[in-house]
Simulated assay, not measured.
Amino acid sequence: MKIRAFLCIALLGLLVACGTGREAIPIGTPVAPDFRDANPVDFKGQRPAQYPVHGIDAARFQTSIDWSQARRNGVNFAFLKATEGGDLLDPAFTTHWRGAGKAGVARGAYHFYYFCTSPEVQAQWFIRNVPRSKGMMPPVLDMEWNPLSPTCAHRRPAANVVQDEMRRWLRIIEAHYGQRPIIYTTPQFYAENNLSGFNGYEYWLRTTAKSPGEAFPGERWQFWQYSATGLIDGIKGEVDLNAFSGTRAQWTTWLAARAHK
């Protein structure tokens, strides 16, 4: 029994009884990722494997998630799609939000921004649908061009307009949740809107073909979305994979500082 207990602690890095392996893992306790990738990339420079804390993002496309199993397989955090524009709610948000929270997965909600609706309307729509939950990660503003929208696909304002609308949304959300939001973006959107000078916010960067250092030269990041083809036991189909930028200890410290009190 002593050997068994020792192995459990060494392999998982957490104080969980080893009898059934089904006990809830406390939120913020890091578990090493047991992920696969249907289309792995040989990144140059920075590599996902050098970061010990990983997670996912999920939306309606993830139709079935056993959150407890996913947590045991190293899903330490999950960014969950909540809203789009001023009137769209992701139909899976509530289910994912409750499931992740119950399983001890650090969870945060994100908003997909539309340029055909005012930032004030969009911020209020997000607030209406995302509860202020104890322990939640900061809200996320997802900034990328949307070529699939039937109404907003061709709306691409100038960079100064984009940044002004971002700041207006961010201020409202920070005031409501008491957390400075995180910004998610892509290399194209980042470059075309001069976001290298948009200071004061943490970044969650999407780059699945190049490392962050190559795709976003000189930019600091907190989360890196490095794959859209992840495979994790407990999750049906492929899922986006993400890495946290620091060590296990830094993850625990960051979450304690940034989680909703």
Rank of each mutant, 00 (worst) to 15 (best):
D57Y: 13
D90R: 08
A82I: 00
P131C: 11
V31Q: 02
G99Y: 04
P33W: 09
L89A: 10
K44M: 05
S64C: 11
R98F: 09
P138D: 13
T63K: 15
S64D: 15
V140H: 10
T117Q: 11
D66R: 12
I65N: 06
S118H: 02
H54L: 05
R155K: 11
R72Y: 01
R128M: 15
R60A: 09
F112H: 04
G85C: 01
D66G: 11
D34A: 11
R36P: 05
G85D: 05
H111F: 00
F35R: 13
V31K: 06
F79H: 00
P33M: 02
A38K: 12
S133V: 15
L148C: 12
A32D: 05
K44N: 00
R155M: 11
G104V: 05
K44A: 03
Q46V: 08
A78M: 04
P52I: 02
D57W: 08
P150D: 14
T94L: 07
I65F: 07
V75M: 08
V121F: 01
F93V: 06
R71W: 03
N76A: 02
E23C: 04
G104Y: 04
P147N: 12
N76G: 02
A100M: 05
Q122A: 08
I56R: 07
I25K: 03
A24C: 08
S64Y: 14
D34S: 13
S149P: 08
Y113P: 01
P139N: 13
A106D: 10
P150Q: 13
K81L: 07
P138S: 12
R47H: 06
V105N: 09
R72V: 00
Q50R: 05
V75G: 01
G55R: 03
I27W: 04
P119W: 02
G85M: 01
I56P: 00
V105S: 00
V140Y: 11
A100K: 06
T117M: 06
G45Q: 03
M137P: 12
A109F: 09
A106T: 02
S149V: 03
F79N: 05
A92D: 04
N76Q: 04
V105M: 04
N129V: 01
V53H: 01
I65P: 02
I25E: 04
H96M: 11
D66P: 09
A24W: 04
S68W: 05
M137V: 10
C152D: 14
M137W: 05
W145M: 06
K102A: 15
G45A: 01
W125S: 02
D142G: 00
P40H: 09
P150S: 10
A59H: 07
C152H: 07
C116T: 12
S68V: 10
Q69P: 06
S118C: 04
Y110R: 00
V130I: 11
E23A: 15
V140D: 08
R72L: 01
V53N: 02
D66W: 08
P52R: 07
F93Y: 15
L148P: 04
P33D: 07
N129P: 10
V140T: 10
A153Q: 14
G55L: 03
S149G: 10
P139T: 12
R156F: 13
A32S: 12
G45L: 03
P119Q: 06
A100C: 14
V121E: 14
C152T: 11
Q122D: 09
K134M: 13
E144V: 10
A103Y: 03
W67I: 10
Q124N: 14
